[in-house]
Write a protein that binds this DNA or RNA. Structure first.
Lengths: 205, 205
DNA sequence: ACCCCTTCCTAACGTGGTTAGATTTCCTAA
DNA sequence: TTAGGAAATCTAACCACGTTAGGAAGGGGT
């Protein structure tokens, strides 16, 4: 009996090693170097072995995308410890852009249109949930009632992604992009506060 | 003498046909179908002929990217005819996202990290210039002095790109993304106006 | 000792970008 | 009119990729 569990353990282990090798290649050499044969070589196996652990390359890449989102999530949680509600929001913005700068190739596959849209949305969900949570506490702290909460989240998320992309697409440096993201977030939040003069209905026309 | 000019004309003509064929394949079947052999077949040539007109595939794709930006530019100019300065800004936002929705594959290559960053910036410049122009007239119309004009533009550009990406990455539908872009723009512009109470210094701390 | 299942490898297929070399086409100049 | 040569074009091939087929090897259970 124990042999089968050991084999399962070994299987899981090599699977993990494949993911780690793939991640290492991706982060250090970019998406162009991320080939099945290269990964197989790095884990000292032949190429077909990879297909015993992943249905195809996309499945493996999806694993990297999921890893990337877990990593981003953990950094978000760290940034979310900031007590001040306003600074907390800008720190999230800054952190998001920093992530894109520190893990450009990972960020690239995390937002690659080639990976299945549903899967991408699924693995990104926890990260977005943090953003939702933060926005909730922020709006509560400022007595702001967002008429369309989900819409506000999507705007925030899209804005962060866009400005981070400015950096990783080479339009601006990462430091500047981080600053831009903070400013953009500040401006948007300011807008939402002033849209709510005293009552709870933001201007929507 | 006229034969050489005719040959040059024919050369330019097939070059143009190649670009058109490539564009057609890209728009109708997506980036995965955009192969040299496929394009060559469509223009009724063999594959190597393409290399007499373009150094490599990237050079051809860059031409498509340039075309895409020219197309976007023309649509921007049309949207910029709106007389009302505020509505003009939101229309640009809406138009940008609509473009991404109507030309998803073109939009994709226009923002593909694989194409050279400098070239991409270069061909995108005229479009951004329109945005700059519009923002200039907007701020003049509202007596708003942006302390960091370029920064404001980059924020706008990044925001639009991010929200358009929300659509073409499949997070939200295009109609909704268009609405989000309008709202985001409105909010940001509102923020910039309220950041400038009467004097010309926006809050920067 | 035999068998079978899992694991692994080599070899191959099809498709992609790209290049070399031969072949055809067509102008030019004797 | 024809011989020479340059331009244009094709076929065949190269290499790398994702992926699959088929067989060898190894160890566990009967």
């Amino acid at each position: 009996m124990s042999t089968s569990t050991r084999r399962a353990r070994e299987r899981a282990n090599t699977r993990e090693r494949i993911i780690e090798a793939a991640l290492h290649v991706l982060e250090t050499e970019g998406v162009a170097a991320l080939t099945i044969r290269r990964i197989a070589t790095d884990v000292e196996y032949s190429a077909p072995v990879v297909y015993q652990h992943f249905a195809n390359k996309d499945a493996l890449v999806l694993e990297l995308v999921a890893h990337g989102h877990r990593l981003m999530l953990s950094e978000f949680r760290r940034a979310a410890q900031e007590p001040d509600t306003d600074r907390r929001m800008t720190r999230i913005a800054s952190q998001y852009v920093r992530f894109a700068g520190e893990h450009p190739h990972l960020f690239q596959v995390m937002n690659d249109p080639m990976v299945d849209a549903d899967e991408r949305r699924r693995v990104a969900e926890p990260v977005i949930d943090v953003l939702k949570e933060l926005l909730t506490t922020w709006s509560a702290a400022h007595d702001v009632v967002l008429a369309e909460f989900d819409q506000a989240c999507e705007i925030l998320w899209g804005t962060l992604y866009g400005i981070a992309s400015l950096s990783y697409l080479g339009s601006v440096g990462n430091d500047r992009a981080r600053y831009l993201a903070e400013q953009a977030l500040r401006t948007i939040l300011l807008g939402w506060r002033t849209e709510t003069p005293a009552n709870g209905r933001p201007a929507s026309s």
